Simulated assay, not measured.
Amino acid sequence: MNWISDWALPKIQTLFGAKRDVPDNLWHKCPACEQMIFHRDLERGLYVCPHCAYHMRAGATQRLQWTLDEGFQRIELPKAPADPLRFRDSRRYVDRLREAQAKIGQDDAVLVAHGAIEGERAVVAAFEFNFMAGSMGSGVGEALVTAAKLAVLQDAPLIVFTASGGARMQEGAISLMQMPRTVIASRMVKEAGLPFIVVLTDPTTGGVTASFAMLGDIQIAEPGALIGFAGARVIEQTVREKLPEGFQRAEYLLEHGILDMVVPRPEMRATLARLIGLLRNHERAPLAEAEPVPGLAALPAPDAARDEATQSS
């Protein structure tokens, strides 16, 4: 053993500033204000900029971890046909699919889990935008139908976090068929008397917006989220008019009655738990009492209860 090269030399290099390997992901730049944020501060803040409150995009796994209590369980989703149309553009669709699966570590663009939100039982589905732009193909349709069936089976509300560029073009008409399928899935939950809550995150566009994403009993969005069907430039070219500033952003949609509330990410979990408690307790109160109870008639109607929840948040 050469103690000079094995022990002494490394010590000397350390003392005199030898080159060290430093990870290149310790700091992140906010896309809005361009301030640098230490990665641990960013994680603690749920990827919300501490300087300007800009909400950065988040993955499906993060959504589940931030929303559900510890001990939640992800469910295995049905396998959809990998390449039903044998589609090919500049590359084969099956190759794009495999690349996305290897990169993200999940089979398709939606994850589904069941558990509790601050003690309130719930089923949660979350889109992963980094998986082919969160596009909705047959796999996503299967995932949402499965989530709806699980919610009905467990007598639990269904919450969906959307983040999508729309229908998946590589599956053609099959992807468009997922629009009515997901509408039916949302209907299953509602007919069972269970709350269906949609949380629209940046971005939610195309066929997802045009189907189940706008059918929630309560529509929530994160601040600044882009929500729409077609892009602003396409709409301007079609109607030949200048569109209002920020007309596809969450705050504009809230102003014009399309959303019920805009909730910052750090407050989302508590807000969802409060809404579930409000909706579920209101449904069960008449069944829990065999005889009229003084003051029961003073409970707000469902629409009034929703307005009260909107104002309190």
Rank of each mutant, 00 (worst) to 15 (best):
K103W: 13
I104Y: 11
G105C: 11
Q106P: 08
D107T: 13
D107E: 15
D107V: 09
D108G: 15
D108L: 00
D108A: 11
D108Q: 14
A109W: 07
A109R: 09
A109C: 11
V110Y: 03
V112D: 06
A113P: 10
H114P: 08
G115Q: 09
G115H: 08
A116F: 09
I117G: 03
I117Q: 03
E118S: 11
E118M: 11
G119T: 05
G119C: 12
E120A: 14
E120G: 06
R121C: 04
R121G: 07
R121Q: 14
V123Y: 01
V124T: 09
V124P: 10
V124D: 06
A125T: 10
A125W: 03
A126D: 06
A126T: 05
F127M: 09
F127Q: 07
E128T: 09
N130D: 13
F131V: 02
F131S: 04
F131H: 10
M132R: 15
A133T: 04
G134W: 09
S135I: 00
S135V: 01
S135W: 01
G137H: 03
G139N: 05
G139A: 14
V140M: 08
V140S: 07
E142L: 15
E142T: 01
A143D: 08
L144A: 04
V145S: 11
V145T: 09
V145Q: 10
T146D: 05
T146Y: 00
T146M: 05
A147G: 02
A147P: 01
A147W: 00
A148I: 02
K149L: 14
K149N: 14
L150P: 04
L150H: 03
A151K: 06
A151F: 00
V152D: 07
V152G: 14
Q154V: 06
Q154W: 08
D155F: 03
I159F: 10
I159A: 14
I159Q: 08
F161R: 05
F161L: 15
T162W: 02
T162C: 12
T162A: 12
